[in-house]
Simulated scan of single mutants.
Amino acid sequence: MSAASEREHVADATDEEIDAIVAEFGGDARQAIRALLHDLTQIALDAEAAVSRGYVRGNLLPFKLRGSADPS
């Protein structure tokens, strides 16, 4: 994958969006990051359950989930 096509898949958050997320957690950046990682994990798990493993060849999750067995 070329660098140009990789950039198309990266969502750039604005400073205002980042400030809003941190403010939602009372200014605690660790809590905000923890919540975002939790949401990302849930989205990945939902996608894993909804998509055929054969279709994605088992490469759906781009990161390892803590405490989960290796699906391969």
Rank of each mutant, 00 (worst) to 15 (best):
T41G: 06
F25A: 02
G27W: 02
R7H: 04
A47L: 14
L37E: 14
V10I: 11
L37F: 07
A47T: 01
D28P: 04
D19I: 13
D19M: 10
A49H: 02
E24I: 04
E48I: 01
E8L: 04
A20I: 11
D46M: 15
A4E: 06
D15Y: 07
D12M: 13
A11Y: 09
R7P: 01
S5N: 10
Q42G: 09
H38L: 11
A50P: 00
E17V: 12
A23D: 12
I18T: 05
R7W: 05
I33R: 08
D15L: 13
Q31H: 06
T14P: 03
H38N: 13
E8P: 00
L36C: 07
A44P: 00
A3G: 02
D19W: 11
D39K: 09
R30N: 12
I21S: 01
E17W: 13
H38F: 09
I33H: 08
A35E: 14
N59C: 09
V10E: 01
I33Y: 06
D19L: 14
S5P: 03
D46F: 13
L40W: 10
V51Y: 10
E48M: 05
A11T: 09
S2I: 12
E24Y: 07
Q31S: 11
L37K: 08
E6K: 09
D15C: 03
D19Q: 12
D12K: 09
Q31A: 15
D12Q: 11
H38W: 07
L45K: 00
V56S: 10
L40G: 11
D46R: 15
D46H: 12
A3E: 05
D28T: 13
A4M: 03
A32M: 07
A49W: 00
R30V: 04
R7C: 05
G27N: 05
G27K: 04
T14C: 07
Q31I: 10
A44N: 07
G58I: 01
S52T: 09
G26I: 10
S2W: 02
E6Y: 07
E6M: 14
V56M: 08
G27Q: 04
E48R: 03
R7K: 12
R53A: 14
L37P: 00
F25S: 05
L60W: 10
V22L: 15
Q42M: 13
S52D: 15
T41F: 03
E8N: 03
A13E: 06
D15E: 10
D46P: 02
L37I: 04
E16L: 13
E24W: 06
A35N: 04
Y55N: 07
A23W: 03
